[in-house]
């Protein structure tokens, strides 16, 4: 993926977030303060605006998203996603393409950033659980190409699995046992990020590298 593909991915994600805004807010209303959909939509709408005139390279696309999310998205998702994209931008410094081999380290950089910012280690029922499993599973497959279909599959499975956990971080933690069974809004918006990544790569077509 080059800078243009990544910009296409982020535009697609911005569209999906707008579409799913009400659903994300509904999820967040059940366990938090009900602002995840609106916050994300506000931030990604601005990302889409900025991308219209953007002409930089690969690390700069990630940096643009990071800066925009940090300044526009309130709540926890601004700093968490902002840190993830910032770390990815740092990892991609000097690169023009993301190759199959780059995914494990790229995802690790993002996942560690989220863990540090959110002060989580896993199992707290947050978006970090999804990022961590995707990053760790990709790393374990060293040597084998990591396809975006795999990333999506691992993300979906984890987001589903943590429904049964009790939330230990964020507003949902105030609910205690009543958080069990609910979907985590941040985990779900993370799944959508991998879903749109896979759609972007699949729809590119022609080169047969990813299906």
């Amino acid at each position: 993926m080059n800078a243009k593909d990544v910009a296409g991915w982020f535009q697609r994600y911005a569209d999906v977030i707008e579409e799913k805004k009400a659903w994300l807010t509904e999820l967040d209303s059940a366990v938090g303060d009900g602002d995840h959909g609106a916050n994300m939509a506000r931030g990604w709408k601005e990302v889409r605006n900025q991308l219209k005139t953007f002409e930089g390279g690969l690390p700069e696309v990630f940096l643009l998203v990071s800066r925009t999310l940090i300044s526009k998205v309130g709540g926890a998702s601004g700093p968490l996603y902002g840190t993830a994209f910032l770390r990815m931008s740092m990892f991609l410094k000097g690169k023009e393409e993301i190759g199959h081999d780059d995914w494990p380290a790229l995802l690790k950089a993002a996942s560690e950033g989220i863990g540090q910012r959110g002060k989580v280690n896993g199992g707290e029922k947050t978006m970090y659980d999804v990022w961590a499993v995707v990053s760790e599973t990709a790393e374990k497959r060293a040597g084998e190409p990591v396809r975006t279909s795999h990333l999506l599959e691992w993300a979906r499975e984890k987001a589903e699995a943590i429904r049964d956990l009790r939330a230990l971080k964020g507003r949902a933690a105030y609910l205690g046992d009543r958080s069990v069974g609910h979907r985590d809004p941040g985990a779900e918006s993370t799944v959508l990020l991998f879903e749109t990544l896979h759609q972007t790569v699949s729809s590119r077509g022609g080169n047969g590298r990813e299906r």
Partner: peptide
């Protein structure tokens, strides 16, 4: 606040 009259905090 979130800068738009709602609840929230922003790093910037």
């Amino acid at each position: 606040g979130d800068g738009e009259g709602g609840l929230g905090t922003r790093a910037e």
